[in-house]
Amino acid sequence: MADTGTLPYKASPVSPLAPDRRYLARKFHGRFMAGLITVAALVGVSVLWLILGYVIVRGAPAINLDFFTQRPLPYGEVGGGIAPSITGTLLILAVAALIGVPVGLGCGIYLAEYGRGSVVEVIRFCSDLVAGVPSIVVGVFVWALLVRHVVGNFSGIAGAVSLAIIMIPIIVRTVEAVLLLVPYTLREAALALGVPKWRVVISVVLPSAKAGIITGLVLAIARAGGETAPLLLTTLGNQFFSWNLLEPIGAIPIQLYNYAVAPYPDWHTKAWGAALVLISVIGVLSTLARVATWGQSR
């Protein structure tokens, strides 16, 4: 700075670093855009709290012991709950997991451990496409496949199959990703000891990726638990307790929908209550799943 006079160009009378008008305009523009961007983030964050707040404030009055233990009552009768929907959702989710978890896990293992070349690309691509199929279309498909022909009526098993189809691509994606993170030297060490490949996968690779796999499974189950559209076309819902998978079974999202579209204020409160139950279960599951992965990746 000191020898400005020796510069080969004509120095301006004011320092080039002095804030001129254009500089101030650019600075102001930058501040303005930073403000807009902050507002965008605030909007994104506040929308979540707005919806959560609504669900909590309007759902809380519906929550009492009866809500979890009684079946829905006809309009006019005081009380009643969503118990058949809770047991129904648990049953459907359990069966869906029984179908979806082995398939998703197997496919993920194939992609990470067995598959070669373009077959892997094709199967991964198919899995991504299945993930992108709208859930209502899955519902139509399962209706045409199971409800119409094989089972013959709306049934819990059809709902479970449609939820399994929704779960599978989520499981495939996470399982493949976490298995590829397992260091190859672990596999080599086991193989060098003479362990057959299937034992390497089951006893070495899967246990090392345990946390990530469980996260994927939990996220898939949480996602499937909130699905409504395919269940409307496959399990239909049921006001009564039912454990028969070949009959219509209640589910929380269906009960919520039926309560919400009915014209009775009392049922609307119950719909918010059902929403609160659903969101609590899903929230707890997703948070646990994410906390588990953070613990592992950091």
């Binding site: 979540l48 669900v55 699905e227 559209a229 919520l256 997703s286």
Partner: peptide, 16 residues
């Protein structure tokens, strides 16, 4: 927080 929005089921957006 924003990604948690993705975990909220469609039916709850509908209710809201």
């Amino acid at each position: 927080t924003i990604e948690l929005l993705a975990a909220i089921p469609s039916i709850i957006f509908g209710l809201w």
